[in-house]
Nucleic acid binder design. Structure first.
Lengths: 398, 398
DNA sequence: AAACTTATGGTGATTGACAAACAAAAGTAA
DNA sequence: TTACTTTTGTTTGTCAATCACCATAAGTTT
């Protein structure tokens, strides 16, 4: 009779790699302490990781009175990752090293409503240009991460996205994979293309690369639309159908028609979308949320007033979020958040006034640290985490 | 130098116990399949669990063509658990077996505003009466679970509870432990007293004992006040300060003063609290939320109207919750939920109208299955899970 | 009753992780 | 230079878990 294989020999290699690539450990002593494995086991697993090229020696650390410990680092140069942050009206792409540090990037004003063909072909062409710029081949790509402004299922297929109906049912990994690795089918076989909501990759970027590694936090993205990525217990929370964090379409009592075909959504009165409409009515020449943010930074009176008012409305919704989630941090990002002061001030004003004392006592409301790069870095991190998942690495070295 | 002890011999016993006590496995074959351990290891661990009296043989199961497998069951009769569900205006207590099945229960209209002394002394006296009724001693008690209508920290101490200011800083485990095991200090040493929010124990009860074992769900408690327990990824979610799920004090646009000293809270217009005030103004004689539910069940026109209206208002708040959390199920409980139809109809009406299509497509809004027992059963389950935690059991048998 | 199926108990060999000990390496402090 | 500290490499015996058998138990099917 066929017997089950023994339970993963070499288990633990993945655990060590995770400790190293997340920067929690760099020496053998660190690894022994944090992993709980025996020193001999750690040494053996380190050899396997070195041999597989997943880590590299990184010189000696300073002595603490005796022989200085040898340090190890994640081998971030053994290939590249591609990250795309497809927003509702603006798209950014980047080539990063394997640790999701940006090597080259570019961006464009693209409307997702133009459909998957237009947007995804720009994205794949931009990937190719960036690869050439950093002197890498398509064969150096180890993974691709993509963020889209709508809900996706487990396989990366869009499901009933409200603002991009043309994309319904589109499998982004399939399309991207085919476009990138065309004519070299066997090449794309092992290169994962991972897709998630734009707000989720932004949250992931801020969490892992932006220094906001808090267990319970909300990352708000304010641009033409409004959305939120939720980090719950240290993990991205997606909800039962991947639709969680839909801040922009909470009903806020007004009756403005929204682009989602409903009425009274937060976006319809506080999104960049609504501000742009008001400014155009007043004779301004604005097209993107970046235009609005620029006007606000220059101190344009009317824009500052509108942005601050939008901040207050968003703050009302966030006060509810604070009551329900009780996060320790709210990170405010998105193109409109580049307006900084007026928006943050409006949000803070209302949240601290409205939220219950306990939930808001230690609450911090801060801007993103990665700024407009949060999305692309997060997208790269998404596939990075898939590639270097502890169990996957342990199994591969077993 | 002192060396670390070897990493938990006999590991895995706790895993097997968990599989057995949660009903996922009852035969050796099940255990081997679900745990991944070798058959010999499972046999050895089972012996240890049997010897420790944690499980008992439960006869043979039906044959499937050969020798019938021997089954094992959690030894639920080796002691008792105590569960208390302290609500804002009503308190229930129960003695349960070790699997949190109720053996005896009682209840009383108690106002938490009367202070911790009054409430907790009634609770401990009720525990003593119930123990006598089922013929058990205080020494048979293996653990105590308590739910309170306010936020608690990790040690079971109340922190800034809005509706019970007298309880601020009170350590419930300390008080209960002292009152229950007075004069027998050594006895209470190993008997854990675990405390959580009332909505959280209710959610736990519905999840583990009510057949609602869904990964992402919201359990709403509607009584004199309104609150929600959140199950996120299969676990109770408490937030950064334990204040998550504060549905009752979301601001809903009105300007009614609330008992929490703010204005415009959901509770102030939709809580049993607000309905009672309206009914009293109309000349009704109502005191508790059970009175209101009774009137509604009898079909009293005015009460049904008010309850349905409250349901709509709660539905508005829940529509926001659905957008943010995207749960698969909303469980509606609490004393006022005993009014059933009018309340549920009001909630459903608004949630399905307002929530985004995707998030509400497969959403189910259903009443509790445990009814008024959800809290006490959940409280017992809370300490049950602490007592029979896999790691704790593995360590104890190692 | 005989053949078959499934479950259980026990044994021995193998394997992998661990603790402990020792030696060597590479720094600092006196 | 010498003594000391810390890190690293290597080895050895111990222990626990697993696998692979074999024997037995207790049903069902023929």
């Amino acid at each position: 009779m066929v017997k089950k294989r023994a339970a993963v020999p070499r288990a633990g290699a993945g655990t060590l790699l995770t400790l190293i690539r997340t920067g929690r450990a760099s020496t053998r002593a660190d690894l022994v302490r944090l992993s709980g494995f025996a020193r001999s086991t750690v040494a053996q697993r380190l050899d396997a990781l070195l041999e597989a090229g997943l880590i590299v020696p990184a010189g000696d650390a300073g002595s603490t009175g005796g022989r200085p410990p040898e340090t190890f680092a994640f081998n971030r140069h053994a290939g590249v990752l591609l990250g795309a942050d497809i927003g509702g009206s603006h798209t950014r792409v980047a080539v990063t090293d394997l640790a999701a540090d940006v090597l080259a990037e570019t961006e464009a004003d693209l409307d997702v409503a133009d459909g998957p063909d237009a947007v995804l072909s720009w994205v794949t062409e931009a990937f190719a240009r960036l690869l050439a710029r950093v002197g890498r081949e398509i064969s150096d790509v180890r993974g691709v991460g993509v963020g889209v402004p709508g809900p996706v299922d487990g396989t990366g297929r869009l499901v009933s996205p409200p603002i991009m109906p043309d994309w319904d049912g589109v499998s982004v990994p399939e399309r991207v994979s085919r476009a990138l690795f065309k004519g070299a089918e066997e090449m794309g076989e092992d290169v994962p293309v991972v897709v998630d909501r734009d707000v989720n990759i932004m949250a992931l970027g801020e969490q892992k690369a932006g220094g906001h590694d808090h267990a319970d936090m909300v990352v708000v993205k304010i641009g033409i639309g409004i959305g939120a990525g939720l980090i719950v217990g240290g993990e991205i929370y997606r909800g039962a159908q991947g639709a969680a964090g839909d801040l922009g379409h909470l009903r806020r009592g007004t009756d403005e028609p929204c682009r989602c075909d409903n009425r009274g959504c937060l976006e319809a009165t506080a999104g960049g979308w609504a501000i742009r409409r008001r400014l155009v009515e007043l004779g301004y020449d604005v097209r993107t949320s970046q235009d609005i943010a620029r006007l606000a930074r220059r101190g344009d009176h009317e824009t500052v007033r509108l942005v601050r008012q939008a901040g207050r409305l968003i703050g009302e919704a966030l006060a509810d979020v604070v009551g329900l989630f009780n996060p320790s941090h709210i990170i405010v990002g998105g193109n409109l958040a580049e307006a900084r002061e007026p928006l943050l001030a409006g949000i803070r004003e209302v949240v601290y006034e409205r939220a219950q004392v306990l939930a808001s006592r230690d609450l911090q409301i801060v801007p993103t640290t990665l700024g407009h790069r949060a999305g692309t870095i997060g997208a790269a991190l998404l596939v990075h985490e898939r590639l270097y998942d502890a169990d996957r690495i342990s199994a591969a070295l077993g």
